[in-house]
Simulated assay, not measured.
Amino acid sequence: MKTVAIIDYGMGNLHSAKKAVEHVAPDTTVLVTDNAEKIREADRVILPGVGAIRDCMAEMQRLGVVELVREVSKDRPFLGICVGMQALMSRSEENRGVDCIGLFPSQVRYFGDHLTENGERLKVPHMGWNQVYQSIDHPLWHNIPEGDRFYFVHSFYAEAEGNADMAGRTHYGVDVAAAVARDNIFAVQFHPEKSARAGLQLLKNFTDWTGKCL
């Protein structure tokens, strides 16, 4: 039986993610755990995250999760969600600047206090459903139509411009990297566990993914 470990460092929609994965893969054991050995033994790993990146990184440093993520993300399917995606970048502007795990070179930027589109002011955080356009052909996009909608809640975003690792983009005043991918790592800014059919399909694809790109 396959095992998916959802890393519990106290920051994230842990149980909603667990229920969503169990729903799409009933033959899979899904663990919400902070036990490093159980995470190392898992076939697949998910790094969730909500809240301020400073707090997330502080807890991950305190609990040894940063080095654990660097270790387990090398050799099995690995999925980052929301702040879990931002944590994989090199640095975030949030909280006056926070160094992140650095698996991807991108910077995390603030939308700004005066974000506009066509002369209209946009609310920050970006909260709600938005279309995602696939930048690459990837197994995690299987059976997800181009431009399908996912649910977002965030005030900071990974840059899209010049982002060689971008797997999907959305637009909210600026182009945003909605997903990034490299080798066996895939990470999304949106919440698949809250994104209805499209989100459940992405999680299903993750549970079936071998970690190899096309």
Rank of each mutant, 00 (worst) to 15 (best):
Leu47Cys: 09
Leu47His: 07
Val50Cys: 07
Val50Gly: 09
Cys56Trp: 06
Cys56Phe: 03
Ala58Lys: 11
Ala58Val: 04
Glu59Tyr: 07
Met60His: 01
Leu63Ser: 08
Leu63Gln: 10
Val65Asn: 10
Val66Tyr: 07
Leu68Pro: 00
Leu68Ser: 02
Leu68His: 00
Val69Gln: 02
Arg70Met: 00
Ser73Thr: 03
Pro77Trp: 04
Leu79Asn: 04
Cys82Ser: 10
Cys82Asn: 07
Gly84Ile: 01
Gly84Gln: 00
Gly84Ala: 03
Met85Val: 03
Ala87Ile: 05
Ala87Thr: 06
Leu88Thr: 00
Leu88Arg: 02
Leu88Val: 02
Ser90His: 10
Glu93Phe: 02
Arg96Glu: 15
Gly97Cys: 08
Gly102Tyr: 12
Phe104Trp: 00
Gln107Tyr: 14
Gly112Cys: 06
Gly112Tyr: 05
Gly112His: 05
His114Tyr: 13
Thr116Pro: 04
Asn118Cys: 13
Asn118Ala: 15
Asn118Met: 13
Glu120Gln: 15
Lys123Val: 10
Val124Cys: 05
Val124Ile: 06
Tyr133Pro: 15
Gln134Lys: 15
Gln134Ile: 08
Gln134His: 15
Gln134Glu: 14
His138Met: 01
Pro139Tyr: 10
Leu140Glu: 12
Trp141Gln: 06
Trp141Cys: 04
His142Gln: 14
Asn143Leu: 12
Pro145Gln: 05
Glu146Trp: 09
Gly147Ser: 08
Gly147Leu: 06
Gly147Lys: 03
Asp148Arg: 07
Arg149Met: 11
Phe156Asp: 11
Tyr157Glu: 12
Glu159Ala: 08
Glu159Pro: 00
Glu161Leu: 10
Gly162Glu: 13
Met166Ile: 08
Ala167Val: 04
